[in-house]
Amino acid sequence: MIKASTNQWKDQLFRIYGIGATFFGLLILGIFLVGIVIEGFSRLDFQFLSSLPSRLPGKAGILTAWTGSLWIFGLTSITSIPIGIGAAIWLEEYSKKNRLANLLEINISNLAGIPSIIYGILGLEIFVRMMKFGGSLLAGSFTLSLLILPIIIVSTREALKAVPRSIIQASLAMGATRWQTIWLQQLPAASSGIFTGIILSLARAIGETAPLIVIGALAYVPFVAKTPMDEFTVLPMQIFNWVSRPQHGFIVNAAAAILVLLIFVFIMNGIAIYFRYKSSKKVKW
């Protein structure tokens, strides 16, 4: 009896601890959000979104920054998605489970954990210097692609793994080739999982600053990028630049830009959650 009541008591204690831990995190996030909104919301207007950077906080805008972010988003998607999915399919479905495959697997998982600044240095060396892209959108998006490839590969593999073997067996037993099975069965069945992984990793790419600083993205770009070879800035760079200035007006600008970035990331997370919800609802194997 004593034992049981002690256990119950411990259970209660843990429950309280759990609730406390959860609300602590939420509270911090809430305080941060409220602060940002109070500071920056009034600054959010059309002028802010459509103006070039300026020395005067009141006239400055984030046009180059958000278009740059959009460019990076697009270019990174185009490069990282096909490569990531392709690599994941090969690793999951075709490669023999030998030592080389094991080595690759471990390395890819490790790559996902490498600090982003290292990728910046890699990008600087390969894309900026060796391939002579300079501090361009192309160099930036390639670098970010490298950064998120491991995440895409790992999440795609997980999604492919979640497709029941019975479906694959059924398809093969019908006389389908490996490729037909992947294209007609595995990818559609794994699509929501794959999309979730892609969107979450792209959201990460959008928020990255460090590697872009290393490859030489500029804080002050007075024109909107027209081609992938143009120089660029992105929202996080702009924010970084503004918060490091002394004038209060720029701090307000930074808060507003943070709001824009957050909205962007929230939307992407929302899409990811939608896909995950859809996948959990759609198929009961």
Binding site: A170, A173, M174, G175, W285
Partner: peptide
């Protein structure tokens, strides 16, 4: 693939495609 068109298979657990 040709062989499997000739020799069909039905599995233990019903496994229709989704």
């Amino acid at each position: 693939e040709q062989l499997r068109k000739e020799v069909g298979m039905v599995f233990q657990k019903p496994n229709p495609f989704p």
